[in-house]
């Protein structure tokens, strides 16, 4: 026969799923909560989100060019990192801060370790931690919702410090009309995004479900079965955003089912310990980062039982 036949190893068909589609789904899932952040905090929030996304993409392209590897800005992974970082910033930060944060996330945390899939921590969270450590005042100055530069504590801050201000209601926390980072306030829209990701098969309920569940149960017990406080702990801080969108980061979470269980419960425990007994009102970032670091170790000790192996 004249034509040349392709010969390759089986299988000869592939699913239509691609990295790009997965990352695009994550972006789509984040958008409602991000949009609500803009509605909630005003146009300055939009500026910050755009700055962090654009600088993440630029940093990705630049570092891939320097590393002489294919430039894959179109795979949406830098968009996700930039968007997540922006959503994790207070609206009042100076405009250079998201740029520095995105550059750190992409260049140091992601590309320096080998790029997509090789980061040992969630890049956006690592960048946030760096920003908090370096510019603590800027990173913890909270602006009251739709008010002009009136400083207002976050819900968890109020609970922690016992401040003499009214604690927001559960409804406010659910809808997101409370203080906090740009994209973390609307628990409802974040949950919606999370459900979308589960529906699309991008993430499983395992990590977010167990993480949030652990926090809820522990808080409930420690607060002496205080439903109001427990609900606020679940809804008002960065837990929903962290559990569905950051803790589920493929590269920095365990790949085995058993490993994911340990990882999720570990994050829940650390979050509650920091919130209840630590120096910060919020513990989601550090709990995820800490468990990110032990994820490879967890994987090593949670190898699945092989089919036909001893039960």
């Amino acid at each position: 026969m004249e034509s040349r036949l392709t010969v390759s190893s089986s299988p000869h068909i592939r699913s239509t799923e691609t990295t790009q589609k997965i990352m695009r789904d994550v972006t789509i899932a984040l958008l409602p909560a991000a949009a609500f952040g803009v509605y909630n905090f005003g146009l300055r929030a939009l500026t910050i989100l755009v700055l962090s996304i654009v600088s993440a993409m630029a940093a990705e392209a630049l570092s891939q060019k320097i590393r002489k590897v294919p430039i894959t800005v179109d795979d949406f992974s830098a968009v996700v990192t930039g968007l997540l970082l922006g959503m994790n910033l207070p609206v009042s930060v100076p405009l250079w801060l998201p740029i520095v944060g995105s550059a750190f996330a992409i260049i140091i945390v992601k590309q320096a370790f080998g790029g997509l899939g090789h980061n040992f921590m969630n890049p956006a969270l690592a960048a946030r931690a760096m920003l908090v450590a370096s510019w603590p005042v800027e990173m913890t100055t909270w602006t009251a919702v739709k008010a002009d530069a009136v400083s207002s504590a976050t819900t968890l801050g109020i609970l922690k410090e016992g401040l003499n201000v009214p604690v927001p209601s559960i409804t406010d926390a659910l809808l997101g009309t409370i203080g906090g980072c740009i994209g973390e306030t609307s628990a409802l829209l974040l949950l919606l995004g999370g459900i979308y990701l589960i529906y699309r098969g991008v993430i499983s309920i395992r990590i977010p479900g167990l993480y949030i569940g652990t926090v809820a149960i522990l808080t409930f017990i420690i607060t002496g079965f205080d439903v109001q406080t427990t609900m606020l702990h679940v809804l008002a801080g960065g837990l929903i955003l962290g559990a569905f969108f950051m803790a589920t980061d493929y590269a920095s979470s365990p790949i085995t089912a058993k490993g994911q269980v340990i990882y999720a419960i570990g994050m829940g425990v650390i979050t509650v310990v920091i919130r209840m007994y630590g120096g910060y009102p919020e513990g989601v970032s550090y709990s995820i980062l800490l468990m990110n670091v032990v994820a490879p170790l967890i994987d090593k000790y949670t190898k699945p039982r092989v089919f036909g192996g001893a039960k």
């Binding site: 390759s8 795979d75 090789h118 499983s204 085995t256 190898k303 092989v306």
Partner: peptide
Amino acid sequence: AKLPEPSLCIRCGKCVSTCPAFLE
């Protein structure tokens, strides 16, 4: 028949959850 172009592993773990022999 076009051969798929491999890109970096994103460690999504889908290969682990689908493996019918329970391998990684």
